[in-house]
Amino acid sequence: MTEISDRIPPPAPSVPPEQIKAIPVRHYGRWVAGAVIIGLLVLIGIAFSNAKINYGVIPDYLFDPGIVTGAWTTLYISVLAMLLGVVLGIVIAVMRLSSNPVTSTVAWVYIWFFRGTPVLVQLLLWYNIALVFPILNLGFYKDEMNQVMTPVLTALLGLGLNEAAYMSEIVRAGIQSVDEGQTEASHALGMTQGKTLRRVVLPQAMRVIIPPTGNEFINMLKTSSLAYAVQLPELIKKATDISSTSLAVVEMYFVACIWYLFLTTIFSIVQYYIERRYARGSSRSLPPTPLQRMRKYLRMFGSFRRPEVAR
C-alpha cells in the first residue's frame, strides 16, 4: 500500500544558495499615492476636530445606563430576529426546492414580497396589524391585537420575516452547491430524504451558507435601528431620547456608532471561528486561528529559525 508520506519529495537543503543582491525597481507611483492618501486623511481629521462637536461628552455617555440597555436591546432583538430568519429561511428554502408546485410557488411569492418591499414598511405594517386583525384568537388565547403586538414582538416579526426571505435564498444556494453524488450515496445507504438533508447535505452546505449569513447578521445589528420607528427602545431610540434632553445630538450618534462598531467587531470574530469549524474536511489542514498566527509570528521574531511547517 502506498502511503501519502512516501510520495512527498525529500525536504530542500536547509542552507540556501547565495542570495541575489540587486537594486530593486523604484515604485515612485506608490510613494505619490501613499502621500496623497495620508494627506487626505489628515485633512478629514482636521475638519472633524474643528467641527462644533463636543467630543468630551462621548466617554461620559458611552456607559450611560440608557445607552447600555439600548445596546442590549439591539443585541437581543438582532439575535432573536436572526434566529427566526434562519429557521424560517431553511423551511422556505426547502419549500422552494420541493417538487410540490404549491409549496414552491408559495415560497417564491414569500421571497418576492418580503424581499421586494422596504423593511421599514414591513415593520410599520406589523405595527398596525390590528387594522386587519383587531382581535387575536388562538382558541386557547384571546386578546386585543394592540395588546399583543408589543414593540419587541413587532420588531421581531418585522425584522425576522424579512430576514427569512434573504436567508432562504442563501440556504438554497448552499443546498444546491452540494454535489449530487452526496445525496445519491446517502440514498444508496438507505437514508431517507430528511436524514440526507440533515446529516449529509446541510452540514456541507454550511460552508457556503455561513459567510453570507455572518454578513446578514452584521447587517441585522444595524437594520434593527429601524425598529426605532415602532417604539422599540433600542440603541438609536435611546440615543435620540438622551440627545433631546442633553442637546448633544451628534455626540449621541457617535456614542451609538461606537457601540455598533463594538458589536459588529465581536461578531466578525465569532464568524471567523464558526467558519473554521465548518471548514473541517474541505481542506487538508485548517487555517490557523488569529491567536495561533500571532504565536507563530512571535516565535519567528523570537528566533531566526525557519518557521515551523504548519501541521
Partner: peptide
C-alpha cells in the same frame, strides 16, 4: 429506503461524506 439498505453501492467518484 428499506430496500436499499440491503444493497450496497460503490461509486466511481467515491462520494464519501467530506465532513
Amino acid at each position: 429506503s428499506a430496500q436499499r439498505r440491503d444493497i450496497g453501492m460503490v461509486f466511481q467518484r467515491f462520494n464519501l461524506f467530506p465532513h
